[in-house]
């Protein structure tokens, strides 16, 4: 029972980590929360659906992140850079507007109905571990989530570009004074963030349903995670995503009547106890 609970919350948290860490990365570099992130994730899911129909799930898992990384580059050049001089709130509002536009375009092409994607043969069915039968696909999801999380941590810790990203996130002006090109980094980070959203979208296909409301649901969940994790802290976002996943899953088991409200209750409690979140993010005013 407890093992199942933990496994299920890890599966959900895997998706959330990929999305919330992408949000936190952009925030660290640009001080902008991308309110369109949910729409990018939805685009990933729908593109994943189409590519899966044509060339299978594995092709989708490779092609869609690449396509969305290109979208991220366009987003960086066409939105984030021209608006660099504007206040962060204005840029955040622009991303909100862009997200609505993207969501509506997706609905225009795919219609307002929910779609589902089948997991590939090798990942369907379930496997028995320690007398517990568990769906293979969720195990795959956990491996992908924790794997990308580990890769991200390794990149941030052990490469020079990772070091620069941490430096800019910690103190942008000092980092610039030391000769770090924040624009080039931002291009890398934005495309990485949207590619992650693409991976999450494709992975969400066989796990959750693909529907036109998924962008708002996901962005709200991610915003809650980012606030709980301490705005801009990637480590905090990862811990918060795990906590969120666990609360969500445990809530649907033990408090089915108010399960939908559990994340918000968690948010309010964290705000009461630690208004700056649990991580050590950079708090800006």
């Amino acid at each position: 029972m407890i093992a199942l609970l933990i496994a299920n919350s890890l599966a959900l948290a895997s998706l959330l980590i990929m999305l919330a860490s992408g949000l936190a990365l952009i925030y660290g570099l640009r001080d902008v929360i991308n309110f369109g992130h949910g729409a990018i994730y939805m685009l990933g899911a729908y593109l994943g659906y189409t590519v899966s129909l044509v060339g299978g799930f594995w092709l989708a898992l490779i092609v869609v992140p690449i396509l969305l990384a290109l979208l991220g580059i366009a987003f960086e050049y066409l939105a984030l850079r021209p608006l660099q001089g504007r206040s962060h709130i204005e840029v955040a509002l622009v991303t909100l507007g862009l997200g609505i536009i993207l969501g509506q375009i997706i609905i225009f092409f795919y219609g307002g109905v929910a779609r589902s994607v089948d997991a590939p043969q090798i990942l369907s069915g379930s496997v028995t571990v320690l007398n517990l039968s568990y769906p293979v696909y969720r195990i795959f999801l956990i491996i992908m989530g924790l794997g990308s999380c580990a890769l991200l941590a390794l990149w941030l810790r052990y490469t020079s570009s990772g070091l620069y990203v941490r430096a800019v996130s910690q103190d942008p002006s000092v980092a610039r004074m030391m000769g770090i090109n924040a624009d080039r980094l931002s291009l890398l980070v934005t495309s990485l963030s949207t590619a992650f959203a693409g991976v999450a979208g494709v992975l969400a296909g066989p796990y959750l349903s693909i529907d036109p409301g998924m962008d708002v649901t996901m962005i709200v969940n991610c915003l809650i995670i980012v606030v709980i994790g301490g705005t801009g802290s990637i480590g905090g976002a990862i811990v918060a995503a795990l906590l969120f996943g666990f609360m969500q899953v445990a809530g649907s088991v033990f408090l089915p009547n108010i399960a939908a409200l559990v994340p918000y209750i968690l948010l309010m409690i964290v705000l009461l106890v630690a208004p700056r979140g649990i991580g050590r993010g950079r708090v800006l005013n």
């Binding site: 709130i89 980012v226 606030v227 409200l261 208004p275």
Partner: peptide, 17 residues
């Protein structure tokens, strides 16, 4: 009491709640 960006996120979350 939070910063403007967090305020924006929190009002969205509260509305969804």
């Amino acid at each position: 009491r939070t910063n403007p960006l967090a305020f924006m996120m929190l009002t969205l979350a509260a509305g969804e709640m």
